[in-house]
Design a protein around this nucleic acid. Sequence first.
DNA 1: TTCCTCCGTCGAAGCGCTTCGACGTCACGC
DNA 2: GCGTGACGTCGAAGCGCTTCGACGGAGGAA
Lengths: 335, 335
Amino acid sequence: MVKITDVARQAGVSPSTVSYALSGKRPISDDTKRRVEEAIRELGYRPHAGARALASSKSNVLALVVPLRAGIHIPVVMQFAVSVVTTARRYDHDVLLLTQEEGEEGLRRVADTALVDALILMDVQLQDPRLPLLRVLERPSVMIGFPASSEGLTCIDLDFKAAGEVCVEHLAGLGHRAVALVGSPPEVYVRQTAFAQRVVQGFTAAADRHGLASSVHPCEAASGAARKVAERLLREQPALTGVVVHNEPLLEPLIDAFEQLGLRVPGDLSVTAICPDELAESVRVPVTSVALPSADIGTRAVELLMRKLDGTEVPEATLLAPRLTERASTAPRNA
Amino acid sequence: MVKITDVARQAGVSPSTVSYALSGKRPISDDTKRRVEEAIRELGYRPHAGARALASSKSNVLALVVPLRAGIHIPVVMQFAVSVVTTARRYDHDVLLLTQEEGEEGLRRVADTALVDALILMDVQLQDPRLPLLRVLERPSVMIGFPASSEGLTCIDLDFKAAGEVCVEHLAGLGHRAVALVGSPPEVYVRQTAFAQRVVQGFTAAADRHGLASSVHPCEAASGAARKVAERLLREQPALTGVVVHNEPLLEPLIDAFEQLGLRVPGDLSVTAICPDELAESVRVPVTSVALPSADIGTRAVELLMRKLDGTEVPEATLLAPRLTERASTAPRNA
DNA sequence: TTCCTCCGTCGAAGCGCTTCGACGTCACGC
DNA sequence: GCGTGACGTCGAAGCGCTTCGACGGAGGAA
């Protein structure tokens, strides 16, 4: 193994000079820098991560805690993870993958052993048991999603309430007078995951504001459930002409179910969704949707963390404004 | 920060004794061990990962390289990653997440900086550019999937050839005489990813052996493509009564398409798949399938790696025998 | 010209841990 | 009763890097 002293010898300088040439923390003459770089290249030198972490008390590793619970759309998690890794690399950091399963003990472990410098958590619940820990941990963290109180923490997420509102407003603007929300599986609500509830709040508030008849239906993500909920909607709300879907795996089956029940989309029924653009575009009838910008959120989360590591102040809450893209699934009522 | 010397003082022993009590590498009296453990608990001591890595030249971290290319079913990747993390934890290791995007340079980086002790690679291609690197890297690795030559490397995967055969044999056993394989997207074959080709080999070989008429159809994973391929199959192969699907996202849409074309499953058409059991069970007509045991593979991959880290010899190739589960989508011909 | 400052570099200390050799003690066998 | 291990513990060295203080020399100010 080639070490910094080898490089120093080869370049005719001291080890500390090599270190400074690498880190830029002290001025080094161009000539010296060049010789050092050359020596590094010739010898194929790579600084030892552990030694570096020990001496500098920085591991340049971020922890990413991913959920593995039911009711969460896996591709979104994955896309998010990839964008975190990619962005972290831009800042010369790596990403350690943890599962929710490890719980608070896992967080404490990687933080206290100095394995990681900072943490990113996904799938935060309203009363998340990890919150107190994050507040006392001596390492910065960013949460994807919002707990009941984000006091002293840093959170980022799509503004789901606004997303629910935007969907309703789009439908109201098209003249629809009765709308329904097909939501996430019941367990997601029971778990008190904020984003699902926020959509409901936004949806209901906007519907009330516009004087629309509305109803909310949590729904399993199995395609069998699509048919059932479709039938039920038509039975209970015969005047229904607008539907908001906040349940990725159900989107396509639900549209199929409506069509099989004799309703054309968007002729008889307008459908909007809150989901990744990718999914919305890939449905047989491309769906008007509010984008779930997982890649964007991942990038921003890492950027927030980097600023915290720099000692910069960052806002406690970052809510991304919803962006609705019109596609083929919505049309004016009675068009 | 509390360090090993603090623990040593508190327990009235030397730092090295604490270290040995922790690692068990030398005998320590029960009494001393107890006092050390107590001191650790009282002080909340956590060994510094970097210091440990430096002194022991072991980071206790594994690298996991995940693919992010098209044509790969994301939930499978995720499930795999989770099982790797979970198993690694059982062996007191953590997992660093890398993307394929980082390429060979990324592998070299984490290996040469001693950030990780070993590597796991997914989505290996027949002529994978990373192979030469893996052979010279001074760290053990395990690959999920098989390259053209696994000489000197360690690979593990489902036996996809046998999986293709098992599907055909199941159909042949039910009396079917004309079968088709609906495969992965074309780009997966172009990329020379072994598993897709192996399925084709097994499928074709078994069909020939049993004297069945057969055809192979790579297919996009979009649900629009399902309808097209279904129509094409019926047109080109009117006698068709058995289909093997090796394309997760297409499974359900394809069955829908067949039914909309007037074919009942399994009445007129028997369908088998190679996919996660979870998926096969969740389809409206539960599908007879060969399981894609991602969790199992992940676990085994980590176990192989641990044995290599121990210096134990492991087999170069581990092929998991296919396991076919009969469900509602297959029935005897002309039942 | 002298003094001070800033630049570029060096040497040494030290980050917190593991590990090696050494040493005292105790039990056992002859 | 004494040699001989094995057991349990200690001290010191060192893993490879960063960083701090120091220092010589050049350049500008006085």
